[in-house]
Nucleic acid binder design. Structure first.
Lengths: 147, 147
DNA sequence: CAGCATCCGCTAGGATACTG
DNA sequence: CAGTATCCTAGCGGATGCTG
């Protein structure tokens, strides 16, 4: 194994981590990184971005049909938050019955590229993770985690 | 703008999205992608991975000091889940006082690479997002979102 | 030091009913 | 069709106290 190449990759990672975590090496509560990341730790944001990225433009109920299990309420809340953050555009057509079309903005697309890689990683490694979970659960562990 | 290059990039994205979302174009509840992604939608997992990736090896309280605001309980729960998924290794030294060291596994590092890019994106675009939020909040919106 | 155990508030998020 | 409005609950996650 070529140590130099590995070390270079390591250095690149460290560099990026410094940038993310800040010079203090801590990510405080008011920190922008934390703030943004928290936005995507809800149940439906990432999924919405995937589907909008895949379909291009979708009406409300079209999107709802594609995201299995999402309630009307939560899809509305999710889309409003994404719109607020400038990641999704919402176009209302004043017709009867009403038509509303959602689409990723340019900023939304730039995020899509990142989360796609994360999604791909999840797909590629899901077997490994499931196996690890099974192996872990085989052994005894403290009661706290049984629940 | 070169349409061909753009189109090629588009095709790559579409390809990956198909892979993630599955042939049906839907991500059902039992889907592995959903399952994995849900694991990182908690408050502290990503942050723990960042800090472990940055420091290499950390004891429990060292890590706790670096993650601002995390409670002892939640750090324990988070680390156990990461250990269960095979992303973090936990080594206990039978000393008094006890010493426990946490470190990313190889699998954990492969994930780190992905989330670093996401973190970098968040850092780079936080201003844009904050501005979008302010602009959105300036205008009137439905009462539902005022809360 | 590195944790469990317990209590407990808050809120994300589901179910349902109603509307422009 | 695309939402609101309201009600309600599971469980995330904080505070505190105790242990090997």
């Amino acid at each position: 194994m070529n140590r130099t190449i590995v070390d270079n990759q390591q250095d690149r990672l460290q560099e990026k981590l410094q940038k993310i975590l800040g010079t203090s090496g801590r990510v405080s509560g008011g920190c922008p990184t934390r703030n943004i990341l928290d936005r995507f730790s809800d149940k439906w944001s990432i999924l919405s971005i995937f589907h909008l990225g895949n379909a291009g433009t979708l009406r409300f109920n079209e999107l709802k049909k594609r995201i299995d299990g999402v309630s009307q309420r939560m899809l509305t809340v999710t889309l409003r938050n994404l719109e607020r953050d400038g990641l999704v555009s919402r176009r209302v057509y004043p017709e009867i019955p009403p038509r509303v079309e959602y689409e990723l903005t340019e900023l939304g697309y730039s995020l899509l590229v990142q989360v796609i890689d994360l999604g791909e990683w999840a797909t590629d490694h899901s077997d490994q993770i499931m196996n690890a979970r099974q192996r872990y659960d085989m052994r005894e562990h403290s009661p706290m985690l049984v629940n």
